[in-house]
Write a protein that binds this DNA or RNA. Structure first.
Lengths: 343, 343
DNA sequence: TCCGGCGTTTGCATCGAGGCAAGAACCGGC
DNA sequence: GCCGGTTCTTGCCTCGATGCAAACGCCGGA
């Protein structure tokens, strides 16, 4: 019944010889090889990947643990990671946590329990060091994305502090004086913290006044709601630095609804450089992290760990750049923003 | 060395008994069970999923073959499918084809070759009937999404023809008379064809004049470029029915850049109801397919096939609804569009 | 004619889990 | 004390592939 046996019978050899032909590791007489290949062709035999997995103790699968694949930043990153993984011969499985700590924990435990993954790439939102250490005594390697610098793990990130500074300096350079930071979070989430720190550092050494608006999550709805609160409270800022593009997209919607002109009355900058931001009007000034570099570096680091590298944890700093578009730069150039800002 | 053996030794039983305790299928004496459970706990033993896969001939993994996870419609659908799959105990693996037929073929072949997936959910863009039949003589079940009604396969879709009709009738009901269909495609892609057919059917029985603009792909860039062509060519339509929301988002950008007022001069409707359409301004009127129903139905159908059901191919028709927003309905209500149109 | 040596082929064991049925232990009943 | 019948435990085999090393066949050389 077993397919390999059938091939062997048809070719008049032992099952073992079929394996030898398939793997190519051992020398097989050309005549025999040909007979086996013909039989394989005739019977359409394919070696079972599961059998190989069992033998090798490897599955070739990597889990990507992120809050939410619907969010454009993560879907773009997920896409880049999927491609990078495939290039290295891995299959990427996307697991969504919705940013809930219990769910992040459950997934880590499950990933470890089922032992189906050769390694994990995790973008934690709410995990503590102990959380991360607990579920992998077995030693599935983990690479972290984002700013959670848990000790002992490889880590790929951009300089959120510097990037935030660049964005805020850009706003100051436009002559804005009342800057709102939108997207601080009450708990956890060090990306937010670092962006906030960058914001505050620049504000502190400037003449401008800064204010901070908190959100529960990075979403368009949160961004819009936050701006509504801010406008109601008054006086309105003349620039908003949003900690993510989806927040900024929500903010733009709320500003438009309130009849506030962007960028003339309020300049808006985001963070992530998602596709939507290029096509919203006014198009969105934003910090653009090199997502493909991040993806490549993460897969690369994980691959090395899977291959047994046990050197010190690596911390890869990926580049970013500030992309200025119409949401902060007004006027004459708005006619052809697509050409100017598209990559 | 083998973990199960260690557990057995520590508990003073045979390896087989450990399996019996774990699976729970066979009766084990309470005292023995407890000793084994203690040993499992002490040694932190987890049964290997790979071993189970080999034994059962099932992996619990489903492949989702789509053009592109970055595209918001597919990322939203992917998210819904991931959740639905998990609820049924499956793990979903997302494979991107970029809409290229060779890549779609390669993935189907690979999925079959590696035999890692229990089944596939495929949203084909360019596959022919023979393509689909060729690579699965082995019989991995396939469920198709979208409008490609290849015979012999389960199939989940919405009534694209009727939905397009609804959208166009909505535009006509606003008094528009020069309607542009944006998103027809030269080759393959029957979703486009059906939406085009719906458009033409309604136009034919109306007094309005219809025109059609072709695109190479569903993307914001294509939508923007198409509108630029149309405006250049003149005279401008007074309504545009876009065959997808990303096309519409590109169209809105191009219209804004050209200084064309939406909806006053041109009304714009889309298709898919992606998140960004709710937050762009003006917010986007669109056909909203019930994505969670689609996801649930697809996983459900595939699950039944995996379980051995070999009844006639099922064709599931998921509901949709037309969501009217500010891009077609002007004026007084624009102040609070979020509340009015959000689900 | 016999033997060493080479190239090729094959059997055995292993990676974990679990279906099957035989074996072991124990019970009450006569 | 012995027997039939439970209840529990265990060994064997299979799912596929493959590392390892033994076995095989064939060659030329002594």
């Amino acid at each position: 019944m077993s397919r390999r046996e059938e091939v062997a019978r048809l070719a008049g050899v032992s099952p073992r010889t079929v394996s030898n032909v398939v793997s190519g590791a051992v020398t097989v007489a050309p005549a025999t090889r040909q007979r086996v290949l013909d039989a394989i062709e005739r019977l359409d035999y394919r070696p079972s990947e599961i059998g190989r997995m069992l033998r090798k103790g490897r599955t070739g699968m990597i889990a990507l643990v992120i809050p939410d694949i619907e969010s454009p930043y993560f879907s773009e990153l997920g896409s880049a990671l999927t491609d990078a993984a495939r290039r290295r011969g891995y299959t990427l499985v996307i697991e969504q946590t919705d940013g809930v700590r219990d769910r992040e924990l459950e997934l880590l435990a499950r990933a470890d329990t089922k032992a189906v993954f050769d390694g994990l790439i995790v973008n934690p939102l709410a995990l503590t060091d102990e959380d991360l250490n607990r579920p992998t005594p077995r030693g599935r390697p983990i690479v972290l994305l984002g700013e959670e610098t848990h000790p002992g793990f490889d880590h790929v990130h951009i300089d959120n502090f510097a990037a935030a500074q660049d964005a805020v300096r850009h706003l100051l350079g436009l002559g804005r004086t009342r800057i709102l930071a939108l997207g601080a979070q009450r708990k956890g989430h060090s990306s937010s913290s670092l962006r906030l720190a960058g914001f505050e550092a620049v504000i502190a050494e400037s003449d401008a006044t800064g204010s901070v608006e908190y959100v529960d999550s990075f979403s368009r709805a949160s961004g819009a709601a936050a701006v509504e609160r801010v406008l109601e409270r008054g006086p309105a800022p003349d620039a908003i630095f949003c900690f993510s593009d989806v927040l900024a997209l929500g903010a733009l919607a709320a500003l438009a609804d309130a009849g506030v002109a962007v960028p003339d009355e309020v300049a808006v900058a985001g963070f992530d450089d998602v596709e939507d931001g290029r096509y919203v009007r006014p198009s969105l000034t934003t910090v653009s992290p090199a997502k493909d570099v991040i993806a490549e570096a993460a897969i690369d680091a994980l691959h090395r760990r899977i291959e047994g590298d046990d050197s010190e944890p690596a911390h890869v700093l990926a580049p970013y750049r500030l992309v200025t578009r119409a949401s902060t730069i007004s006027g004459d150039r708005v006619g052809a923003p697509l050409r100017r800002t598209d990559r």
